[in-house]
Amino acid sequence: MNIHISETIWLNESEVCTIEHLAEVSGLSSVELRELIESGVITPVNQDPEHYVFQLDYIVIARKARRLRDDFELNTQGVAVALNLLRRIHELEIELDKLQITHK
């Protein structure tokens, strides 16, 4: 069996990418991405709409958006509502974990 030694890209908050890269990797269009920015689902690092820069971990969110769009046949507004609610659930889960860990 072949062992591949591969370039791995760590999708974290300290590396950044362009909107074109985010679109290519996620399968969303840049129009959809701009709508998600307006809905507050995706927040660019800078304020320059012509040259937006994004944390690499937004690739995970953008891919999730594309899956929700395709699998539930949602429009961008529907995707944005779902993602904002999912983020709130995630934040509450972290808060709950934290309480359980620090007050055990």
């Binding site: 591949h4 591969s6 890209i9 760590w10 999708l11 974290n12 690739i59 995970v60």
Partner: peptide, 19 residues
């Protein structure tokens, strides 16, 4: 397939590595 990958120092739960 087998991939040899590096787990980066400081990685967190749920983070992704993209190949």
């Amino acid at each position: 397939h087998t991939f040899k990958v590096r787990i980066p120092k400081g990685a967190t739960n749920g983070q992704r590595l993209r190949l």
